[in-house]
Write a protein that binds this DNA or RNA. Structure first.
Length: 272
DNA sequence: AAACAGCCCAACCGCTATCGA
DNA sequence: GTCGATAGCGGTTGGGCTGTT
């Protein structure tokens, strides 16, 4: 039997989005909020399926998105989180404000994976590539293979050892000081996360800790609604300026309007 | 300058989780 | 408890871009 694909209807457009479509979608969501995605295309006057609209919004049009390459800090954070969470990109993305799961996934597959391989690390297991495969049981339960995330205990047992002193790597990508092995960053993260704002945010994240059932003290988010809002506005203006391509002035929101709509956006971000 | 190869990323596909009737 | 609808997630793909020969 199976469910009907959502995009197989006649007249439903696929492929790259046009600026006109973007404009319609942004307009609609800023004015009406994210309601049921299935209804969005119809209400917004788009010949797209709701799924496509949601993807376009979350991956490209959201005002709080950061654009551009991941910073080295962010990259290191992704590596660290991947070691813990596996290919759960949405969870990882949740720890990097302004980044999408798709973006991180792409970055992982195109940059980080190669980087790790070059460093002699298996990107799937975060273990040295030359390590004999005696731990089959562990690998079969690794996050990458669809199993549960490795527990901290398991991680500690596997004891990742990564040679980051490779001159090749150092010359090619100039890793920052904190670009140490996953093991190192993990083993020291409890001490060092106070220094790294990104790591600090991650380590302080209640949800992450809950999901992993780690035995760490639970601290509240280091960024609150106001932080979110300011970040959204910060990035929001840049984002708005990007819309000059199709004439931001044509949109139904001006900056005054945006200041109101940012509340809506923040509500979205808070899951409202 | 043209051809080719590799890279990058937006978008799609299919599956699972969740929720309500 | 079951079933269908919907949202969300992760894997994959295709086309444009960039670098190399």
């Amino acid at each position: 039997m199976g469910r009907q694909p959502c995009c197989d209807k006649l007249g439903v457009k696929k492929g790259p989005w046009t600026t006109e479509e973007d404009k319609k979608l942004v307009n609609f969501i800023l004015n009406n909020g994210q309601c049921c995605w299935r209804a969005v295309p119809k209400l917004a006057g788009l010949l797209r399926c709701g799924k496509s609209c949601r993807l376009r919004w979350t991956n490209y049009l959201r005002p709080d998105l950061k654009r551009g390459l991941l910073t080295e800090d962010e990259e290191q954070l992704v590596i660290d989180l991947h070691a813990r969470l596996g290919n759960r990109w949405s969870k990882i993305a949740g720890r990097l404000p302004g980044r999408t799961d798709n973006e991180i996934k792409n970055h992982w597959n195109t940059h980080i994976k190669k980087k790790l391989i070059k460093m002699g690390i298996n990107p799937a297991t975060h273990e040295p590539l030359n390590k004999p495969q005696v731990d089959t049981i562990e690998t079969t339960t690794s996050p990458v293979t669809g199993g549960q995330p490795e527990s901290e205990d398991t991680r500690a047992e596997t004891g990742l050892v990564v040679d980051t002193s490779s001159p090749e790597e150092n010359s090619s990508s100039s890793p920052p000081e904190n670009c140490t092995s996953s093991t190192e960053s993990r083993s020291t993260s409890e001490n060092s996360h106070n220094e790294d704002p990104l790591m600090s945010m991650v380590w302080n994240d209640e949800a992450l800790l809950d999901s992993l059932s780690w035995d760490f003290p639970v601290v509240e988010h280091t960024y609150d609604n106001a932080g979110e809002a300011s970040s959204a506005v910060e990035n929001g203006f840049g984002w708005l300026f990007e819309y000059q391509d199709f004439g931001v002035e044509e949109l139904d929101f001006g900056f005054d309007h945006v200041s109101i709509d940012m509340d809506i956006i923040n509500t979205f971000e808070m899951g409202g």
